[in-house]
């Protein structure tokens, strides 16, 4: 009887298995097709920017034929933009601002995260929650009062004004993810160090920073990309080209030229976007760790 039952069941099982395999193959095909379509759409704009930046002004001006192809590629847009003193100034400003902001951010957030993760004091709980809530406050909510405050300090139209306000964009998130990384370090490590007579500063420098290095790299990358890409504050606080960082410089100054030099604009935009993209290409895992840490630790 069991044999007949088995006989009756086997075809069923096989057909089920067959359909499962078919289902899986179908699922794989859907996956690849969706990913290919997504990749084409996601990469089309930067690709088109690259194509445009390789065209001569004449070719763009004719406005005929397939815009997605370049007929006689040239690098003249890139040489023009690289030797443009205004663009060099933007680049220099961006580098100065970003370096200062990243350094400031990392010092502030590592110190604060260490204190909040390991040393309890009055109000530390509230402060940790406050850090998270501060991160939720968007920059566009604060730029008008900050405009007044920065103006009151006489720092409008100056990269120092930007260095002062950019930490509001970077510090809360960096502190938040550093608290998470520091809290995940086993407590035995610092107990051992305490017994060996380590001071707090030694503990931070010799244990926490080396152990949490991946987190520090992720936070640094975050601070870098955010301050490189910041747009609202420089747009509001800076109006003279010689103090502008790249983002607003490319958008306002290159576009403002009488004839739209699209080739140069696109070359400038791509050059300006290059540093974050290069960092992303080489440190993708840290970049993604930094992105996802914010929410998963929450």
């Amino acid at each position: 009887m069991s044999a007949t039952a088995a006989n009756r069941d086997t075809p069923g099982i096989y057909s089920k298995a067959g359909s499962l395999r078919a289902e899986r193959r179908w699922a794989l095909w859907t996956a690849y097709i969706s990913l290919v379509i997504a990749a084409i759409i996601f990469l089309a704009p930067p690709f088109y920017m690259l194509i445009t930046s390789l065209k001569t002004s004449g070719e763009i001006a004719t406005m005929t034929g397939n815009p997605w192809l370049v007929r006689d590629p040239t690098l003249e847009n890139y040489t023009a933009i690289i030797f443009n003193p205004m663009f060099q100034r933007f680049m220099l400003n961006s580098i100065i601002i970003t370096t200062c902001v990243v350094a400031l951010t990392m010092v502030i957030s590592i110190l604060a995260a260490f204190a909040l993760a390991r040393m309890r004091f009055w109000g530390s709980q509230v402060l940790a929650t406050g850090v998270f809530l501060t991160y939720l406050v968007p920059d566009t909510l604060l730029f008008i009062p900050l405009y007044q405050i920065v103006g009151g300090l006489g720092l409008l139209n100056s990269i120092f004004g930007l260095i002062l306000v950019y930490p509001t964009l970077t510090v809360p998130f960096c502190t938040w993810i550093m608290i998470g990384y520091f809290a995940s370090i086993p407590k035995e490590l610092d107990e051992a160090a305490l017994i060996d007579g380590a001071t707090w500063s030694q503990m931070l420098l010799k244990i926490f920073i080396p152990v949490a290095l991946p987190g520090i790299i992720a936070a640094t990358i975050f601070a870098f990309t955010v301050s490189w890409a910041a747009f609202v504050y420089p747009t509001a606080f800076v109006t003279t080209p010689d103090q502008m960082p790249l983002t607003i410089g490319v958008v306002s100054q290159l576009v403002r030229a009488d004839t739209f030099a699209w080739g140069q604009i696109m070359a400038g935009a791509l050059m300006a976007a290059l540093p974050p993209v290069v960092i992303y290409a080489f440190l993708m895992d840290y970049y993604i760790a930094g992105l996802t840490a914010g929410a998963t630790k929450g």
Binding site: L35, P46, M49, T225, A229, V251, I265, A269, A273, P276
Partner: peptide, 17 residues
């Protein structure tokens, strides 16, 4: 790696594109 590219480019610059 490919699909994250739009997020990596500063928004003001990709919007220009």
């Amino acid at each position: 790696g490919m699909l994250l590219v739009p997020w990596v480019i500063p928004p003001a610059l990709s919007t220009l594109g």
